[in-house]
């Protein structure tokens, strides 16, 4: 089941990539692409990671929400870094903190780690079991629960529905 799902998602993703890369959508390009994709993906038996993605209406809505949240956070994080870099006093209180995640699926955890890296003032340094170690540019006397609330919770809410 997981394998079939992986196969379908990989086919769709790679087909979109192929169309975008080729730039033209004539009949030869489309059918040649599909044939080549299916032949090459038949030999791919170990790819089960993509099977974590859930189908359905709720995950779909949540992935759109996640997209907007991510874009907003990316913009905010850049303005934040810009502010810190420009200001003459360099206002940083860096440190490495530990946060906890509920996510189980490898793909969901990868997405979470990447999202954390691209949000204001945080950088994932290490993933170990259910704990993430995060370099935080503005540690403000926070314990593990408060850091988890501030850094992880907003993304986890969405990723939990999308990847499970």
């Amino acid at each position: 089941m997981n394998k079939a799902k992986s196969f379908i998602i990989a086919t769709i993703l790679l087909f979109i990539t192929w169309i975008l890369l080729s730039g033209i959508a004539t009949q030869e390009v489309i059918f040649g692409g599909i044939t080549a994709l299916i032949i090459s993906l038949l030999f791919l038996t170990r790819l089960t990671v993509l099977g974590d993605i859930k189908f359905g209406i709720k995950p779909f809505i949540f992935s759109i929400g996640y997209f907007f949240l991510f874009s907003w956070e990316l913009l905010k994080s850049n303005l934040d870094v810009a502010r810190r870099v420009i200001s003459p006093k360099l206002p940083i209180n860096p440190g490495i903190v530990k946060v906890k995640t509920k996510l189980k699926s490898p793909l969901g955890r990868a997405f979470l780690a990447n999202s954390i890296t691209l949000t204001p003032g945080t950088l994932t340094v290490e993933m170990r079991g259910e704990y993430f170690y995060i370099h935080w540019i503005d540690v403000t006397g926070c314990d593990i629960n408060c850091a988890t609330d501030k850094i992880v919770a907003k993304f986890e809410k969405y990723l939990e529905v999308i990847f499970g």
């Binding site: 850049n78 870094v81 870099v85 360099l90 940083i92 691209l118 950088l123 370099h135």
Partner: peptide, 20 residues
């Protein structure tokens, strides 16, 4: 940011976010 930040981790912060 690469020039101004004090250590490698803070430089990474500036480098990653701004370049993305």
């Amino acid at each position: 940011g690469l020039v101004r930040m004090p250590d490698v981790y803070n430089r990474m912060q500036a480098g990653t976010k701004a370049t993305t």
